[in-house]
């Protein structure tokens, strides 16, 4: 089946990235998949099935005529000439990604240092050491700010990705797509741990007496934010690369999944999703103000978060 997919991808490589083309591609893939599955079910070998499917596919020229794609193809080619795009090669993309990881690390580290800096005055609270604590806090803040500034210089060479029109070829796009997919689980883990740490940061304050609680609070928040910033920075690097190709480039179907317009079952479903978070916010504030149990009402958020997923899945039109 993978062979068929890449065959189709290659056939469509010269087509512009429009809705019609994407629809044509997914419909054709569905037909080929149906045929392939039936041939396999009839006892054909995988290779024979792929061969039959591809030989009976036809050619895209007749399709281009009927879909009015000939003009679209010409148009896209014309645009390419008008605004030449810088072709970013695979090696550059790899360099950019490793640079992005470094940047994410220094940025997150800087934020972490700034957040945990107040723990030093707390630690040196006793006796005459107060000044030492304050001085050390400023040193740590300075280190943190330095780290953030340094991180912003790190990708100075790559600013052209945002400023100039660029494009990446199919192989590179596939590479980025794979990398992005494999990072997705790491990112989910980092964000989950990060959020959990931020949510439970007040626990040490309750269980342990004295200075330990406040210190742990800052440390937990610091680590939580570190993980969130680090993961998001790296993943936004992938998104940046994926966005280089758009409707005007001739490079097949590499639009990011999130950019696909979301379809809802009907108007009501769309409204429900739209008012969901404002409603939850209102509920949270009303309940909290009425009961004054702020230490308990935060539980609304994780529950609402889980419920949101269920609501969205039920309101969305299934993809086909």
């Amino acid at each position: 089946m993978e062979t068929i997919k890449s065959y189709l991808e290659a056939m469509f490589a010269s087509m512009p990235n429009t809705t019609e083309v994407r629809k044509a591609k997914s419909e054709l893939l569905q037909m080929m998949e149906d045929k392939y599955n039936e041939l396999i079910a009839d006892g054909q070998s995988e290779n024979a099935a792929v061969g039959t499917v591809i030989s009976e596919f036809g050619n895209l020229d007749e399709l281009a005529d009927d879909l009015g794609l000939k003009e679209a193809v010409e148009e896209a080619k014309g645009k390419e000439v008008e605004a030449p795009r810088r072709h970013v090669i695979l090696e550059e993309v790899q360099d950019f990604l490793s640079c992005r990881t470094k940047k994410a690390l220094f940025l997150a580290l800087g934020v972490l240092l700034c957040i945990i800096s107040p723990t030093l005055p707390i630690m040196f609270d006793a006796g005459n050491l107060e000044n030492v604590g304050a001085a050390m806090m400023f040193v740590v803040v300075a280190l943190g700010v330095g780290s953030i500034v340094f991180s912003s210089f790190l990708d100075a060479d790559w600013k052209f990705l945002e400023k100039e029109l660029c494009r990446i070829d199919i192989n590179t796009a596939n590479y980025v797509k794979e990398k992005r997919k494999s990072f997705e689980s790491v990112r989910a883990l980092c964000i989950t741990i990060g959020v959990v740490l931020c949510v439970i940061c007040w626990v040490p304050c309750i269980v342990s007496p004295g200075n330990i609680g406040p210190i742990m609070l800052f440390v937990l928040v610091g680590i939580g934010v570190f993980l969130i910033v680090y993961a998001n920075k790296i993943s936004s690097g992938f998104d940046m690369l994926m966005r280089l190709n758009d409707v005007e480039t001739i490079s097949g179907n590499y639009i990011m999944p999130e950019q696909k317009p979301v379809k809802y079952k009907n108007k009501t479903a769309e409204t429900i999703v739209a008012v969901y978070w404002p409603t939850v916010t209102c509920l949270y504030l009303i309940i909290s103000f009425l009961t004054f149990q702020w230490h308990l009402t935060w539980i609304i958020w994780p529950i609402a978060g889980v419920a949101h997923r269920a609501v969205v899945i039920n309101c969305r039109e299934d993809e086909f």
């Binding site: 044509a24 419909e27 054709l28 037909m31 080929m32 045929k35 009976e56 596919f57 036809g58 050619n59 895209l60 007749e62 399709l63 005529d65 009927d66 879909l67």
Partner: peptide, 14 residues
Amino acid sequence: YVIKETTLYSAFTR
């Protein structure tokens, strides 16, 4: 007669 996928799909759109 075996109709090609592209022929079929372009007939649908047309």
